[in-house]
Design a binder for these strands. Structure first.
Lengths: 219, 219
DNA sequence: TGTACATCAGTGAACGCGCGTTCACTGATGTAC
DNA sequence: TGTACATCAGTGAACGCGCGTTCACTGATGTAC
């Protein structure tokens, strides 16, 4: 929490009231990042961080849960961007799969607070895979497709249902990331290495450096 | 939370003051089980659940964190018992490995609140793998040995470091269990099936029904 | 056998704190006439 | 061009609540003499 004295805030000019909404979201993001979770997130705490009266939060959010929901939505958007950036220019399906889940794990480690919020308990149904267009569901289905591409490229066995494989990988990578956050003193191998290893073992996709040809020649 | 009116509590007879300690722990366990986590656990809440004055908790616990620490210790003891019960009489190393992690996953699903407490954030160092005799560390090292047994029995490749394999399995099974708790609407396969599948893929150990001989004959 | 005293197992009032939420208010700035 | 008014972007006091923590107290029961 930032305890430094803030320079007195000036009210936003007429017609720019929405700026405060943005400041509130930024402050909440900061608190979640600094405390490593949302359990400390309070309406009054956010107001304090912004430097406004507690009641001013009501001008933009009916309650703290609505604010959290926006944080989660932004978290998913940021995770999507990070994943797309990591996958950019990669054509090999196996490398793309590794990049995809590597970005996921890295996001969790880089943003523990928001990650816990996104994948922890107490998430409203609309954001937690329930609605067909929930961001998590969209991303998961894209991950299923990514596995299918590996299968179609002959890089993974077609005996397995890609949805099931994606489920296994998600569980494994989520466990890797969240245990790392919650048990920082365990002697973890490097994150990327561990994610790659899990993907290789679960999907059967070749490890870095190998090509589809290597796999085709294996049996 | 139990809101039913309690029959008025009678004070414990002389020399039996320690009984209250037990009642407090039971009440705390109930609250953690019913709320699915420890974030709601408060000194006053526990006292209310027991039916005593808030101050009476201080007779046995200096603060709520010490109480939580005891809950966590008991949780690890219970998990150990459940695992030993599940592995009882099993001689096949691969089946033992499946039983071990199956019991772990089942414990998490059966006791979400205490599991989150045991493997979530904010655990005191003594219980979180830091001290050599922390319960989690003991259990993990036993899991490493279980994998070594599989390797020695020719049921798993000896190319892999068993410590690393145990790390991968722990991450995967933890992810499986905790995502299941936090995303209950996802179409999860049955827990046992998923744990077995992950173990088979990660360790290379034969699935249920297969024997060491099948593996030896495979290549 | 009777009684004073110590110990034990709690209790109850009170404190300050941070929280969410309500309500009426303020003061700058644009706009209609 | 001047002024009344509406709107906008917030504020400040007050409320009741649950929390942890303190302190002195209570009342039953065993024990020493």
């Amino acid at each position: 929490m930032t305890t430094a004295i803030k320079t007195a805030r000036r009210r936003n000019p007429r017609g720019r009231g929405e700026r405060l909404r943005e400041e509130i979201l930024e402050a909440a993001t900061r608190i979640v990042a600094e405390t490593g979770g949302a359990s400390q997130l309070s309406l009054r705490g956010v107001a304090r961080e912004v430097g406004i009266a507690a009641t001013s939060v009501y001008l933009h959010f009916p309650d703290i849960d609505q604010l959290k929901a926006v944080l989660v939505d932004r978290g998913f958007a940021e995770l999507n961007q990070a994943r797309m950036a990591a996958m950019k220019g990669i054509t090999d399906p196996a490398a793309a799969l590794r990049a995809r889940w590597g970005a996921y794990g890295q996001f969790a480690v880089d943003h523990p607070g928001i990650y816990r919020l996104m994948f922890g308990p107490h998430l409203p149904a609309a954001q937690a895979f329930d609605s067909p267009d929930s961001p998590g569901r969209q991303a998961f289905l894209a991950a299923v497709d990514a596995i299918r591409h590996c299968q179609e490229a002959g890089m993974a066995s077609t005996d397995d249902d890609p949805f099931r494989l994606a489920t296994l990988v998600w569980a494994a990578v989520h466990g890797t990331a969240s245990l790392r956050l919650d048990r920082p003193n365990f002697p973890w191998p490097p994150l990327d290495e561990m994610v790659d290893d899990l993907i290789q073992r679960i999907i059967g996709v070749p490890r870095d450096g190998a090509t589809a040809l290597d796999v085709a020649m294996k049996p």
